[in-house]
Structure formats: C-alpha cells, structure tokens
Design a protein around this nucleic acid. Structure first.
Length: 446
RNA sequence: UCCGGAGUAGCUCAAUUGGCAGAGCGGGUGGCUGUUAACUACUAGGCUGGGGGUUCAAGUCCCUCCUCCGGAGCCA
C-alpha cells in the first residue's frame, strides 16, 4: 500500500500503460511522440543511421540524421547494442519503404541501459541454443507473434464458453489419485502423503456439470510420460468443457463450433501475426462447419493398404492420424473407438458395446489429436464394474460414484489441448514454441 | 525405456581415402546520407563434448561416458 506510484493515486491511471506504443503510431502521423522499448537492430550509413525499436507491440525504424539531432545523440550509435533499453522521441512519418508503413524521424535518444553482448543475434541459431535462452528468445518477433496468437486463442475459448453461459469452475492441481489410471503421474509429497499433479480436470468437471449444468475448466495439466516428440510437453494447458444432459452428438457439435470460432477469431484479429509466421492462410480459411464425422471403422478402412503397423482394434499412432487427416481439408472427428483402448469413464455404445461413445478431433496437416472426449458412463453399476476391470482403487472414486447415485444424467465433454491447437493454427513444427516456458522431458530450465 | 542422428571459433556450419583446422555471421578497428538479417576493407578468435585405444599421423577409425535432437510406445 505504501509503494503505489504517485500517478496511480493522483490521476487513477498509469502513464506507463497509456503511453504510445508502436502498434498505435499510425494514429500520430506527423506528430512528435516518445516510444519506450529496446533496440532490435541498427544500421549505419555514415552521416545517417537507423535503429529498430521494439516495444512488445511491434517494431519501428527510427531514422537518425546528423542534421536533426545533437552530435551527442548522433554519436550514441557506438554505444547502442542489441537489446539496450532506450527511449526515443521523434516525428511519426508515413513511408512506403517502412515495413509497418511508418517510421520515426528521431530527435532524441536516451539509453536506459546498454545491453552487454545479447546472445541471440539476428542470424540463425539452433533450437537447443535458443531453448536454453528461452527467457530472451521470447523477445524475438516470431516467438512474440506465436505467444500473442496463443493469447488470442485462449481469449477466444473463454469468450466462446462465456457467451454460451458456461460457468468457469477451476479444477484442483493436486489430486489424490490417478484420474485415468493409465498414464504416468508426477508424484509429490503432500504433508507426508502422496499426491499427484493433475492429468485432467474432467472428473471434477463432471461433478461441476451436475451443479451448474454447463461448465469448463482451464488450466495446466501434467503428464510424466517420457515422450520426446513434437507433439508432447510434460506440462501443458487444456480447456475441458462438460455438459449435463448431453450425448455424443451434442459433444461433437460443441467441439466443431468451438474450433470454428477459434480459427475465425484468429483470422479476424491476428492476421498480421500469421503473416509474420508465413502461415498458409488458405489452410485456415477452410475451417468451417460442418466437420467430417467418421466412425472408427471408416478411419481404419482409410489405413487399409497404407504403410502402417496399425491393427484393427488398437488406437491410432501419430503417423496413422496424419494419414487419416490428410483426406480432409478441415478437422476430422473420429468417433466410437474400441472401448478397450479408452478410459474407464467412457460410456459404451448400447447398440455395439465393443465401442465407446467417444470422439477424437484430428487437426489437418498432420497436427494430430487436438480434442479427445465423449459421453460419460452414467450408470453406477456399469461404472463400478469398469473401475474393477481396470484394477483402479474403488475407494479413491467414491466421490465420483456419488455423481451416479444422486441424479445421474447422460453427460459428456472433451479436453482441448491448447499447445497443439496453437501449433496447428500457427503452422509450427513443434509444440515447444507454443508455450512461454515449455517443460519437456529433458528441459526444466529456464 | 527402445531405435536413429548430432556434438568443430560466441552462433550456424564445412573439412575428399586417416595427411597443415576453414567459411559466413557475431566481436574489434575503419569507410559510406535511405539502410531493411544493409553493404564494404582489415583484424582477433580453436583442449574439434569428456575419458581411453588403434596409427608414423585421428575432427575423421574403435570402445566408453555425457549432453542435445528426432522418432516409437503413451497421450492432448
């Protein structure tokens, strides 16, 4: 309370927040403005030199001429190193030669701090080198664009569910036992007892759906699997809606509407960033409902004769998912996998008990599964039998079974992986660039 | 855990059959009034991941360990 800057108290707003940013310079054409940021790059041609200032919202070129500035300012060129923090004042000038349409005719430059040998130069670097310096890498234009698109995607997801009157219900991070029992969990000491980091908020969302009708949670998820692929992180973010009185068809409708909404929003609001990433926009513009819906058997038929080790009755591998999705120009919804390869809480198809009422959404262009979900088992005895069959500790699921004792209804939901969705929309090679500080099997630094 | 690949200058990479360790960028010193990863001249910079072995001679071949990358399984 003692430390609030004076201007907060006096005026009720912050000059630091409301100052001019690069993304807004177009509104000030011809005016003299001050920009605060960091030196992205510089070039000299002798009696005139150029600086690129970035401030997180964009990059603008400043033109420094010996005719317009004092000799002291002109000579700052020597001391300006990459990523030095600087405040520049100058006149906004529209110029076709400028990448952003505007440049600044510099009148004054103030160096706040001279950076010492910034390690990430404007030239090429390997991913290992860059990941080791992820805290600095996120300053680069490309990483900046990806993380802003991530923000837009997250905001779109929240806006979608909020507009549909879903209630946000946060699931716990510490959990007493496996939600699914199949995958490896991160174990932690909880006051002398074992606890685990959540691998899904879904079971809690089922409880919440019975309380609020339509709910979603959004948070981090942890998987201790030793997966080293372009699609895996040990810590990733997932949004998990759950709806009471919903069946598999309802869930598929929800999934395709959400995905269409997200892609449309990114195309509307973040086109410039997609261009920085050189994303093939035509691949996103086709993402319109309805999405193809194919039965597991149809997906299996696509793989027949293809070069794959897939055997009917098993789950699809990463290569199989690519083979399937390559047949479509939008996400494909594969439904009713064999019940044996799916989690215990999935409801079986009453007309074909060997299949689960589940759906996976496979993104186009080989980006793989971005959604997994379906209808949940709502019958108490069937659920108990499944828990026993998979050798899960029944006592750990007492509370979950209560949901089937007190007003059980058909219901369902899904989990959407944020990083895979970002990777797909941005057209990236690897999900590690879709999260600010990725956690991978061999990386927990920085 | 298994399969494959890589490790050489600060960074990205070359180096023929085992035969003098190289380039671009970055750094340093200069030149240039419209540059867009600016251009340009000169210059410094190396325990070739660690250890062991074969050989007259190893960046190169063999053994071993470490680290990283990609993939499989599993999953979002």
């Amino acid at each position: 309370m003692c430390c609030a800057p004076a201007h907060f108290e006096k005026k009720g707003y912050s000059m630091a927040i409301d100052r001019v940013f690069v993304e807004d310079v177009g509104k000030f054409d011809g005016q003299v403005i001050t920009l605060k940021g960091w030196l992205y790059n510089k070039r000299s041609s002798g009696k005139i030199w150029f600086l690129l200032l970035r401030d997180g919202t964009g990059v603008i070129q400043g033109v420094v001429s010996g005719n317009d500035v004092s000799p002291e300012v002109f000579d700052l060129y020597e001391r300006l190193t990459q990523e030095s923090s600087i405040i520049i004042t100058g006149q906004v000038h529209g110029d076709k030669r400028a990448p952003g349409g505007y440049e600044l005719w510099v009148k004054d430059v103030r160096i706040i701090q001279t950076a010492d040998d910034f390690p990430i130069t404007p030239k090429e670097h390997g991913t290992a080198f860059l990941m080791e310096r992820r805290h600095l890498w996120i300053r680069s234009r490309r990483q900046n664009a990806i993380l802003k698109i991530r923000h837009e995607i997250i905001k779109a997801i929240r806006d979608y569910f909020d507009s549909k009157k879903f209630t946000l219900v946060d699931a716990p991070i510490f959990t007493p036992a496996a939600c699914e029992g199949t995958t490896t969990l991160f174990e932690t000491d909880y006051f002398g007892e074992k606890a685990y980091l959540t691998q899904s908020g879904q079971l809690y969302m089922e409880a919440a759906a019975m309380a609020f009708g339509k709910v979603y949670c959004f948070g981090p998820t942890f998987r201790a699997e030793k997966s080293k692929t372009r699609r895996h992180l040990t810590e990733f973010w997932m949004v998990e809606p759950e709806v009471a009185y919903a069946d598999l068809n309802d869930i598929m409708g929800l999934a395709e509407e959400l995905i269409e909404f997200i892609v449309t929003r990114v195309l509307e609001n973040r086109l410039e960033l997609l261009k920085i990433l050189e994303r093939d926009l035509s691949k996103l513009e086709t993402i319109k409902r309805p999405f193809p819906r194919i039965h597991y058997d149809e997906a299996a038929a696509i793989l027949k004769g293809a070069d794959t080790e897939f055997v009917y009755g098993s789950d699809f591998g990463g290569a199989d998912e690519t083979l399937i999705s390559n047949n479509f120009d939008r996400p494909v919804m594969v439904y009713q996998y064999p019940a044996d390869v799916k989690a215990f809480y999935m409801k079986n198809n009453p007309d074909d008990p060997s299949k689960a009422l589940c759906v996976d959404v496979l993104a186009p262009e080989g980006y793989g599964e971005i959604i997994g979900g379906g209808q949940r088992e709502d019958d108490l005895d069937t659920l108990k039998a499944k828990i026993q069959k998979q050798n899960l500790p029944e006592e750990a699921f007492d509370w979950y079974l209560d949901l089937r004792k007190y007003g059980s209804v058909p219901h369902g939901g899904f989990g959407l992986g944020i990083e895979r969705t970002v990777g797909w929309i941005c057209g990236l090679e690897h999900v590690r660039e879709t999260i600010p500080f990725p956690r991978l099997m061999h990386r927990i630094y920085p």
